[in-house]
Computed example of a mutant assay.
Amino acid sequence: MSMEARELSGSDRPSAFARGSIHSIETMGTVDGPGIRFVVFCQGCPMRCAYCHNPDTWRVDSGASVTVEHLVEEFESNRSFYKTGGITVSGGEPLLQPDFVGDLFGAMHDSPSGRVHTCLDSCGYAYDPRRPDRFEHLFDECDLVLLDIKHADPEEHRSLCGCDMDSILAFGEELSRRKIATVIRHVIVPGLTDTVEECTRVGRLIASWRNVVGLELLAYHTLGVSKYEQLGIPYRLAGVPQMDSRHLPELRRAVLRGMKEGRAG
């Protein structure tokens, strides 16, 4: 069940933690990390991926201000549901708010009722390798990262997402250096990322990251198209059909083969 963040902004009492700008929460998330998750969707994203199904999270100035304490209270009110899961912060792009996410994860780790598993769902683009200190607290409090790799080719990545991939790769390298468990996600779009060659290149790209503990290939869908219509934003993949999930096992094998080749080389 998703609820608009404006209904969850909490009190204006002074806080020792950074406040966050969020879009909404999902109280029973099942696809954003292991187990049942309390999912916080941050507001704001610097990428413009052609297949993004949440364009309403792009703008950084339209979220609701919320306290860490309030989110902890919301989690604790349903803690029994999350005993095999934990909390996930997604987006938008949570790396735009590293202090807030670090404080929230730290509070969940330090909960008097018991440590809570924390998960970051990120595209990695907002990471600044010139200022790693800005993300130190977040890294220290993060148990798992779901990292989206959009495309293995730099030019195709720029065309698909409107940005280069240097900071994304730098983020992946830093996660590997810190040995933070990471699940790689790759959206399979017909005509764009659905070839064996592309998936093999993705495998080679991530081959040196020894912290990768999982791989998820996600079939492209058109469930977010209506949001573009409501917001008056042209949908760049109009006419592209949904991905047939029957092809995913073959493409998954291609990624794994690319990883094996990359490590052997």
Rank of each mutant, 00 (worst) to 15 (best):
V189W: 04
V189Y: 00
P190E: 01
P190L: 09
P190A: 08
G191N: 06
G191K: 02
G191S: 01
G191E: 00
G191M: 03
L192T: 07
T193Q: 06
T193M: 03
T193I: 11
T193C: 10
D194M: 11
D194G: 13
D194N: 08
D194A: 12
D194V: 08
D194K: 08
T195H: 11
V196K: 08
V196L: 12
E197M: 13
E197A: 15
E198D: 14
E198Q: 15
E198T: 12
E198P: 11
E198G: 12
E198L: 13
C199M: 14
C199L: 15
C199F: 09
C199I: 08
C199N: 15
C199K: 15
T200V: 12
T200G: 14
T200L: 14
T200R: 15
R201D: 11
R201P: 04
R201S: 12
V202N: 08
V202P: 01
G203V: 03
R204K: 09
R204V: 03
L205H: 15
I206C: 12
A207F: 00
A207G: 00
A207S: 02
S208A: 12
S208K: 10
W209P: 00
W209H: 04
W209D: 02
R210G: 13
R210L: 09
R210K: 08
R210H: 07
N211I: 02
V212F: 12
V212P: 05
V213H: 13
V213L: 13
V213I: 13
V213W: 10
V213E: 15
L215P: 04
L215C: 15
L215Y: 15
L215E: 05
E216N: 13
E216D: 14
L217S: 03
L217H: 00
L217M: 05
L217T: 06
L218G: 07
L218W: 06
L218H: 06
A219R: 04
A219Y: 01
Y220Q: 03
H221R: 06
H221L: 05
H221F: 05
H221D: 10
T222F: 08
L223N: 14
L223F: 15
G224Q: 02
G224V: 00
G224C: 02
G224W: 01
V225R: 12
V225N: 09
V225L: 14
S226C: 07
S226Y: 08
S226G: 05
S226I: 09
K227I: 01
Y228K: 05
Y228Q: 05
E229N: 04
L231Q: 00
L231R: 03
L231K: 10
L231W: 04
L231M: 13
G232R: 01
I233V: 11
I233F: 12
I233L: 13
I233A: 10
P234Q: 08
P234L: 04
P234E: 02
P234W: 07
Y235G: 09
R236G: 08
R236A: 07
R236S: 07
L237G: 09
L237V: 10
L237H: 12
L237Y: 04
L237K: 04
L237P: 03
A238T: 11
G239F: 09
G239M: 10
G239N: 05
